[in-house]
């Protein structure tokens, strides 16, 4: 696993002719165009959108965004999304680090077999388990329409990837600090909390951001488990777009606002997220 990918540009010859910039421009336009169209469309009226689908706001109107921001449902959905993502992230990171620790640092028989359990977990698509999961959470655990009912299964499905990313990360940490602490009479569990947790902060941020963004973007499980006031933003966006299908500008404003948190988080932790994904592929 490459812990921190070196993304600095290489010194290589003959870059930067006109064609390269032109192609880059086209790629950027196609990539970011739909997102910008959504953001700008939120500043137009439906009449403007119907009249000139490809035009710019003229004049700029704020009512669509204001309408969404003064809509209590939007804030309720945002709260639900946030709480579910936070619970998912905390459970995934803490349980994942705990499981990765002995797999990385202890010598014992069956260690690789235990690790294989997590690797195998990667192979089960969530879609396979989704209908029974819905029945179990609703009828056996009585957790339907709650934050925990969505967050805990999400954490369970995130754990295999988390352990697979964190184990090599923990293996790469220097052993000396841990040994010194053990010599000083600290218990293994004490070493875990006081030495390993702080040292593995970068790895935890990577898997944490991954878990958060995955939960924030999740659709299928919340779709089956959450109704009415408990719905998350993706559900809210999908429902809003069908309920207000005539109000394109409103839908675009709602959608644009819903994508902001994931984008901000991504920009803030870009390097970590990127190195984590790359590490997962190489690991």
């Amino acid at each position: 696993m490459s812990v921190i990918a070196d993304l600095t540009p290489r010194r290589r010859s003959d870059g930067g002719n006109l064609w390269v910039y032109l192609i880059a421009l086209i790629v950027v336009a196609i990539t970011i165009g739909p997102v910008l169209y959504g953001a700008l469309g939120g500043f137009r009226t439906n009449a403007q959108l119907a009249d000139k689908p490809a035009g710019l706001p003229d004049p700029w109107v704020w009512t669509n965004y204001a309408g969404v921001l003064s809509n209590p449902s939007f804030w309720q959905y945002a709260l639900n999304s946030t709480m579910i993502a936070v619970i998912t992230t905390v459970v995934t990171v803490v349980f994942g680090l705990m499981a990765a620790y002995p797999l990385a640092r202890y010598q014992f028989r069956g260690r690789e077999a235990l690790f294989m359990v997590f690797v195998l977990g990667l192979l089960f698509p969530a879609a396979v388990a989704i209908i029974p999961l819905f029945i179990i959470i609703t009828r056996n655990l009585h957790m339907a329409n709650t934050w925990w009912g969505v967050a805990l299964p999400q954490a369970a499905f995130a754990l295999p990837m988390t352990v697979v990313i964190l184990r090599p990360f923990l293996m790469a940490l220097p052993k000396e600090l841990e040994e010194a602490a053990l010599m000083d009479g600290a218990s293994r569990i004490g070493v875990f909390w006081r030495v390993l947790m702080p040292l593995s902060a970068p790895g935890m941020i990577t898997v944490g951001v991954l878990a958060f963004v995955t939960s924030w973007n999740a659709y299928l499980l919340p779709l089956l488990l959450l109704q009415d006031k408990m719905r998350t933003l993706p559900l809210g966006v999908a429902d809003f777009s069908t309920e207000h299908s005539a109000d394109t500008a409103g839908v675009l404003a709602f959608t644009t606002l819903a994508m902001i948190p994931a984008l901000v988080l991504f920009l803030a932790f870009q390097r970590r997220l990127v190195s984590g994904l790359q590490g997962a592929v190489k690991g």
Partner: peptide, 21 residues
């Protein structure tokens, strides 16, 4: 950064934007 933006968006959100387009 720009090229990675669509990947970070929720599929649902991307789908709703494309539905409008």
């Amino acid at each position: 950064t720009i090229i990675f933006v669509p990947y970070v968006l929720a599929e649902v959100i991307a789908a709703v934007v494309w539905l409008q387009l």
